[in-house]
Every structure is written in structure tokens, then in C-alpha cells.
Amino acid sequence: MELPNLPSAASLLPLNQRNARRFVDSFTPLISAQLSRFRLPHDLLQDAVQETLVRCLRGLKHFRGDSQLSTWVYRIAYREGLRAQEKLQRDRSRAVSLSPLAEPADSAPTYSPSFAAEQQDEVLRVRTAMDTLPNEQRLVLGYHYLDGLSVHEIALLMSSRPNTVKSWLKRGRDSLKSTLADPSSEESA
């Protein structure tokens, strides 16, 4: 993983106020960007980022350096992201069960036709298509292409096997290609 300008674990110890601030300033953009890919509402995203930071600060003095500090932080953020998604699903199912007339909540954000019409930019078309992917496929595409994590690093942080990660990557790419090749399926997503 190539993430420049991140402090090493050794340089952050002892974990006083100054070093805690250094850690937070260095890693918060990374954690926020990673967790925003979980498609969480703003309040849950905020909670997940803060919880990740607090967990990292609590655990930093016990960090043994078995992996890179950034990998360790990614792993904690990934678990927080999953927890937040579970909470979101629980809340949504409770809301649906309380109001039977309410429309079922969709995990993927919906776009108005006018918004879809504005998606001329190829990058934004990819993003719209990404919303149709299952969670794992969307996340591994982000980890691999955006964060530059290797298949083994992704497998480690997602507690999965490298072959499974490769399969998610392939299926994600294939789905995106077919969605982008067929604009009608993209608009209906």
C-alpha cells in the first residue's frame, strides 16, 4: 500500500495530546474517505469515523507492528463501517415494521431522471453504476483501485480469502462493464 505522509506507529508514541492530534490529522481524511464508500447517512458516517478514531487511539499503544499502521487503521475502519451498516439495516427494518404503509427502504440511493440525465461525465456514470453493486464488490473495487491495496491486504482486512477477493473484483468489474454498456439498466438502478 502506498500512502505517503503518514506517521509511523513508533513516532506516535508516547501517545500524548500532540501525538494524538498528529494521528487524527493524518488519518481522518483516509478514514472518512474509506467509510463514505459504505454509503452511510451523514450522522452514521460521523459516528463511524469518530468511533474508528477513538478505537485507534485506545489501541495504538498496544499496536505491535505485525502489519503496517495504515492496514491496521483500515481494518478497524472496515469493522466500524460494517457495524454502522448493520445498525442502519436494523433501524430501517424497525421503521418498516412500525409503519406497514411505508415504502421499503432501498440500500442504494435513488436518482431522479434529471440527475441521471446530468450524468454525462463518464466518472459519474461509473459512480451511479457502482451503487447497483453488492457491498463487498463495491468495497473491494475501492480498496484496490482507489487505495491501491493488494488482494492479500484486502483479504486480511476483510477477514476473507485472496481468491474470494479476486472473485469479488472480477464480478464487480464485469457488472460495471455490462451496466455501463447498457444505459437502460443504469437508469433503472
Binding site: 474517505a33 464508500r37 466518472v123 483501485y145
Partner: peptide
């Protein structure tokens, strides 16, 4: 896919 905008609004 290497473009951050393709994934989410940070």
C-alpha cells in the same frame, strides 16, 4: 475506477 469521484463524495 482510480478516480475518487467514481466511488463516493468524501
Amino acid at each position: 475506477l482510480r478516480d475518487p469521484r467514481a466511488h463516493a463524495d468524501a
